[in-house]
Amino acid sequence: MLSCGGFSYEKIIVENLKYKYPDTDQLALNDVSFEVEEGEVIGIVGQNSAGKSSLCLALTGLIPHFFNGAYGGKVLIDGIEVKTSTITDLSQKAGLVFDNPFTQMTASKYTVYDEIAFGLENIGVSREEMIERVDWSLKMMGIENIKDKNPFDLSGGQMQRVAIASVIAMRPEILVLDEPTSQLDPQASEEVFRVIQQLSQEGITIVIAEHKMEKLASFTDRILLLYEGKQIDFDTPQKVFSRDDLHDYGVVPPIFTTYCKAMGMKNKKTNTYPVTLAEVSSLLGGENNEWNKS
């Protein structure tokens, strides 16, 4: 543990986190412990009801401040303990984006620009800074061209980027995304993944729950594998997706890994299988290496 006297060098520290929703008898999160360093991109995988969403809610303080229930263990976000903090204070440390673009629109604003400013008005940011932050968010998400449109007139993909813009305008150092592309078409998903990677390049720490393994493999640093609320593994995508028992946890590796496993194409140095198209081709000898840089 790197923490000493409440001060820590890790962006996120989760220690023996347990959580049970009210009126249920199963633990949604059962003894989860991991640490995330600044600037890392973490993927959360697992079957439905493995605890992915609950973990996202716990990192942003919705658990235990919005959802009651039994809570044990500790979550530190940038040195602040979630349990004793508030959702408002945490929202400036760790932002949350979820799957449904519609319900993330406040419905009280008539333009994208005003929508993004909503959170900043609530936390009392000065006008000048507000404008600066909204402009920055619009630019990061590549949505300057729709800033005067009504949020409800947008496509799902655009709306989801507005949702992300609204959250990053709060200037969190961590962004938590719960299946942000599950309701989008391939092109819109691609756009959302692209902006997430861009935010990562800006130094924002990213935690993302997703079913699209091929996408996760291509841009995450580490993968957290959950099963029935328990933490099964927390390691590089290569290590996690090379596990032989992955199937037991209701998860399949990227197609590329499945192929290489079947063909016995292992990276001798790391003793793992490739997880992206680019890794497959570099293992094959490096021709066409520029193919999957995205």
């Binding site: 078409d185 197609i255 079947a262 198209l277």
Partner: peptide, 26 residues
């Protein structure tokens, strides 16, 4: 603005002429 299935992409990457639909086929 659509994508090819991942198995199809992999088949192409492996330099195969045919169009593959599943990883099992490959």
């Amino acid at each position: 603005y659509l994508e090819l299935p991942h198995a199809t992409q992999l088949g192409k990457q492996l330099g195969l002429k045919q169009t593959f639909l599943t990883v099992d086929e490959l």
